[in-house]
């Protein structure tokens, strides 16, 4: 199986070319370029205001870049410039091949409908119409993210923060996307809940061979989940490399400061 996918894996999935964006005088990001390959997990780290979230929005086509280009290899194997996609194509991509996990689950979920419907909705959007099968798929996904299936008919309003975040992940992964964007997915959670979420995420991204771009300010999260790091400061990428290399042998002044500022118990 590994060999079968070899050629497929040799082509980048997402390509960022010289992305720049500013809001008036404020530079949100400047000359950001990288390639993301299938199954690769890239973490973008840096302090608040360093441009991480703006970059994530540009990469996922939710904001236009002032300059530069984002390209994505579609399921048919053709790599396309995202800005040339029509609105319908872009929406389809978002519903099927991509996931987006928000820091606040309320932004990524529909809070007034049941957990089962939250997961099933994405399936219906790609043409599933058999109620029994949708419900079975939703149940199996709740199990995979460690949510008691007995809670399938409850709305996420009745869920704890950690459960909501795991539900948001199930909702995103049910259509078997190839690429998932995550914006501080562990951000609002307390530490014990974080560990469970990270463990669930870590297993799922490997099993499903997902490519992930994850924005986080938590270097421990980056170390646990990611293969590669982009360190941002003032909108620029100041250091990149293998995650353990950047964290254990940071080269830049700012990266050394970040690494040395971690509190360990």
């Amino acid at each position: 199986m590994a060999n079968q996918n070899l050629r497929e894996n040799d082509e980048p999935l997402l390509i960022a070319d010289d992305l720049s964006k500013s809001f008036g005088k404020i530079i949100a990001c400047q000359d950001v370029s990288f390639k993301l390959y299938p199954g690769e997990i890239l973490a973008i780290v840096g302090e608040s205001g360093s441009g991480k979230s703006t970059l994530l929005q540009i990469l996922s086509g939710q904001q236009s870049s002032g300059q530069g280009r984002v390209s994505y290899r579609m399921r048919d194997g053709v790599t396309r410039d995202l800005s040339t996609l029509g609105e319908a194509e872009r929406r389809f991509l978002f519903r099927t091949d991509w996931g987006y996990v928000h820091q606040d689950p309320a932004q990524g979920l529909r809070m007034a409908v049941s957990a089962g419907a939250n997961v099933g909705e994405r399936l219906m959007a790609v043409g599933w119409n058999h109620y029994g099968r949708i419900r079975a798929a939703a149940s199996s996904w709740l199990e995979r993210v460690e949510i008691d299936v007995a809670r399938i008919d409850d709305t996420p309003r009745t869920y704890s923060g950690g459960m909501r975040q795991r539900l948001q992940i199930a909702r995103n992964l049910v259509t078997q996307p190839r690429l998932v964007f995550m914006d501080e997915p562990t951000g609002g959670l307390d530490v014990s809940v974080q560990a469970r979420l990270l463990d669930v995420l870590r297993n799922l991204v490997r099993e499903l061979h997902l490519a992930v771009v994850i924005v986080t300010h938590d270097l421990a999260v980056a170390r646990l989940l990611s293969d590669r790091l982009l360190v941002m400061k003032g909108g620029q990428v100041i250091e990149t490399g293998l995650t353990d290399q950047v964290l254990d042998d940071p080269a830049e002044h700012y990266t050394q400061l970040l690494v040395s500022s971690i509190l360990s118990p």
Binding site: D244, Q245, D248, D249, A251
Partner: peptide
């Protein structure tokens, strides 16, 4: 050792 493993540059 870490250079051989590419943990250090």
């Amino acid at each position: 050792l870490k250079m051989i493993f590419a943990n250090y540059r």
